[in-house]
Design a protein around this nucleic acid. Structure first.
Lengths: 102, 102
DNA sequence: TCACCATATCGGCTACATCCGATATGTAGA
DNA sequence: TCTACATATCGGATGTAGCCGATATGGTGA
């Protein structure tokens, strides 16, 4: 279930094309990211986004935090790494909400 | 059909909650707007949005222009009025695009 | 403990978004 | 033509977004 506040926050998160790309890249990790120490199924670690988009570490970290605050991705911390993965339920609910309310 | 640029522009347009409300209000004109000189089926004239949200004429005009540039609404000019109506095809295509790409 | 690595956060800069009042444009009717 | 009205556009003030380098935080392994 997506509340009205959630919806606004999600739409703000998606208003930046780079953040949308982040989400899209995560749909097909094998095609968009190089191999990493841990299996891609655990999620994608922050570095991978940095390499892929070429922006600074702090900028990428900020974008990922925005996606997480909006509930579109979740994180798994393993040691010094933070693995990001799509929150498929939230994404589906959001689109469903748009479909019925927009 | 929604291109990638369209998608970005639409998402930017939807990143403002007031603009989202404008679109939602237009789904049920009878419930959200008072009667106007011309029938609501022609579209909603700009004044109605002003009254409903309480912001200034110039601000509302700007928001409506943003929605139109994004292709989410179209306008019909009749005399001194501009009637806004939802572009249902564009809205549907956009949501469908999100569903398959996001 | 110490050096290294991954990530998060901070401070500062620049660009864009949002709001307003004032003004321009264009239509309608006396 | 003159006035009133609806809308669009302009200019300026303020807030937010996005970017960076520098630094803080916290795990890893020698």
């Amino acid at each position: 279930m997506v509340t009205m506040m959630d919806k606004t926050e999600i739409l703000k998160a998606l208003s930046n094309p780079l953040r949308v790309e982040f989400l899209e890249w995560m749909r097909q990790p094998e095609e968009n990211f190089s191999s990493q120490a841990h299996p891609l199924e655990m999620g994608i670690c922050a570095q991978q986004f940095e390499r892929r988009c070429g922006l600074s570490q702090s900028t990428v970290s900020g974008h990922l935090a925005t996606l997480e605050k909006a509930g579109l991705v979740s994180t798994t911390k393993v040691g010094q790494w933070t693995f990001y993965h799509r929150n498929e339920d939230a994404i589906r609910d959001f689109i469903e909400t748009l479909k019925t309310s927009l």
